[in-house]
Amino acid sequence: MRIATLLTGLAIAVAGCQREERQLRLDPPIAEALDKVALMPNGISGAPPNVYFALEKPYETNAYNLSQGKRLYSWFGCKTCHGNGEGGIGPAFLDGWWYYGPDMVSIFASIRDGRPHGMPAYRDKMTTDQIWQLAGYVQTIGSYAGKTAAPSRSDEKHTRPAENRAPAKIQFDQGPTPLHPDQGPTP
């Protein structure tokens, strides 16, 4: 009996040692398939391709992808318009208001195809993989619900709650940043 308990405990401990997989390289057919999101006609909301589910939503649940998204966020200059998520020339991601919806597909489309009121398209500047990583990160900082995966810590001074302190709901009270009246869906 003692031995059985011990062995079970050991097995559980060993099972816990599994390291998160890092998807460093997407096979080209998968990358191509991931690009084929089914958007609604107005470019807001829709369905991700089937591979996205087959891969178990890697861009929302995998810490490595979220960390890469965080690096891309500053490498590709999102900060110049969106700050650390508090907004600026572009809308905030922390206030709980989305012009084009909070789901992954809408965020992916916002980044890939751009949006009419001044959001540039990044289609030719990034790979599909990177756009998904970025979308996962943007969704995390403005998340309505807590996630178990979080990107790496910030080295610089914090200007908002850390990404893993979701939901960032405390920020929602501020209401939307009035950028233009063309409101999309609201929370």
């Binding site: 390289r25 990358a31 790979t127």
Partner: peptide, 14 residues
């Protein structure tokens, strides 16, 4: 680049 130097910050661009 990701097969040659896995994890480096240059993606595979199709």
């Amino acid at each position: 680049p990701q097969t040659i130097k896995p994890g480096n910050n240059m993606p595979m661009v199709p």
